[in-house]
Design a protein around this nucleic acid. Structure first.
Lengths: 117, 117
DNA sequence: AACTATACATAAGAAAATTATGTATATTTG
DNA sequence: CAAATATACATAATTTTCTTATGTATAGTT
């Protein structure tokens, strides 16, 4: 696990990226998928996840539908068509940002392809 | 310029990395250096920078000394030896984190060296 | 039967940034 | 040479985003 402050600002791109790929996901599923993909290095907390999902719904980025699993209810989220554009843009911006910040934190790797300079 | 929320959590690693390289820098210099290195894509705001520098000083990560430039005063910051270790660790952690999050946002680039899989 | 996992939700508080404002000197430009 | 911009610090109010804690309830495992 990383120190807390390092995760800041990454939750939204992560969620939108996963929804882009999977089309339809519920909250708990998102937490598990991220844990899988990062080998346990990133654990999304519920207190961060659910409020953000609610906000994204309020903003029209995602829509929800409920599904009954036995006596429990799952809330599935999927991107709206607006949300799809927003997701694409934000993920792109984030990846671009990571290249940019590498120029500061790791200036030897100019292009990301090694010793090309 | 990136959307505001994307910069979150990156300021501290940036500052510590620069201090690691330059040994001694003042606040305004840091903002300009980051602008240079990122071709204007990252602009550190003063309201974020100065309070963080003050906090780092209070924590013993950096020390300061004042220098008179004409009638103006510059406040130079440098890493303490503790700060040096902290800087190293945080920058490493951040770079590791970026690799991890790429597994989520850009799963085709497993290793960062292209089509190695 | 007790513990862990699944599945949602919210509330209080902390942390980190934005935005706005303030002060003052130095340099450039029209 | 006056005005605008750049240099250089600082802080306060507010917002955003996350942590930590708590709550409820069903399902599966030991």
């Amino acid at each position: 696990m990383y120190s807390k402050e390092i995760l800041k600002g990454t939750l939204k791109p992560i969620i939108l990226k996963l929804l882009q790929e999977q089309n339809r996901m519920y909250g708990y599923e998102i937490t598990q998928r991220v844990k899988e993909l990062t080998e346990g290095k990133i654990n999304i907390t519920e207190g961060a996840l659910y409020p953000l999902l609610h906000k994204l719904e309020a903003e029209g980025v995602v829509t929800t539908d409920l599904e009954n699993i036995g006596k429990r209810v799952r809330k599935y989220y999927k991107l709206t068509s607006d949300g799809s554009t927003i997701a694409q843009d934000l993920v792109e911006e984030f990846l671009d940002f990571m290249v940019t910040i590498k120029h500061v934190l790791d200036p030897n790797l100019k292009s990301g392809y090694g010793l090309s300079k």
